[in-house]
């Protein structure tokens, strides 16, 4: 009862302006990745599920791959997180996670395997995709959708404003992120039943 209550509270998750929830998860490369090791670096978290049409929209159009490449070039750490429970849509073990990214030419810095959903719950990740930006001080700067048009149609990408690249640009310019929160859109994260 109490646990359920705590986990519900936790689902409100990462709030812009407040310290990001700490995490420590195994990556597809087999190393333990924690937030603490990226001191001084901007971190982008991307919740993903390869079976979700909304994720496919951004991968099949090469949209996310471009964002990842640009981020890497600017020293930003782009981390994919897979919180699908075993047996549910989008679940990936290390081998599958690596193979998925090779197949679609995606180059995130890390892929975290969060099949128990602990990191997803701590952040309040609700959809795939659901994006978070954490600055070098460990403060959450953005929590929300990837862009302004909540559809699964790749045609819409060109008309949409990308929240993540806009926020990263505003941070680079040393300013405040204007849109700190938006409503994430996509498929629900396929957490283990609780």
């Amino acid at each position: 009862m109490l646990n359920a209550f705590v986990s519900l509270l936790a689902l409100v998750g990462a709030i812009p302006g407040q310290p990001a929830p700490a995490f420590s998860e195994m990556s597809a490369e087999g190393t333990e990745i924690s937030l603490g090791q990226f001191d001084g670096k901007t971190v982008v978290l991307e919740w993903t599920n390869d079976g979700c049409p909304f994720v496919q929209k951004h991968y099949n159009s090469n949209n996310i791959q471009l964002l990842q490449k640009r981020a890497a070039a600017e020293g930003i750490v782009w981390i994919q997180v897979i919180s699908s429970a075993e047996g549910k849509q989008g679940y990936a073990d290390a081998a599958r996670a690596k193979q998925l990214n090779e197949a679609r030419g995606a180059q995130p810095a890390h892929v975290l395997l969060d099949a128990d959903g602990s990191m997803g719950r701590a952040y309040g990740a609700k959809t795939t995709p659901h994006m978070f930006i954490i600055d070098g001080e460990g403060i959450v700067r953005y929590n929300g959708a990837i862009d302004t048009i909540p559809t699964a149609d790749p045609e819409d990408i060109q008309h949409a404003q990308n929240y993540v690249s806009t926020a990263l640009q505003q941070m680079k310019n040393g300013g405040e992120v204007v849109t700190k929160v938006s409503k994430p859109y996509g498929c629900s994260v396929k957490y283990a039943d609780s």
């Binding site: 979700c52 049409p53 909304f54 996509g186 498929c187 629900s188």
Partner: peptide, 12 residues
């Protein structure tokens, strides 16, 4: 009309 329909998986 456009809608998202879901069971546990979602299909636009």
């Amino acid at each position: 009309a456009e809608w998202l329909i879901c069971l546990d998986v979602c299909i636009p």
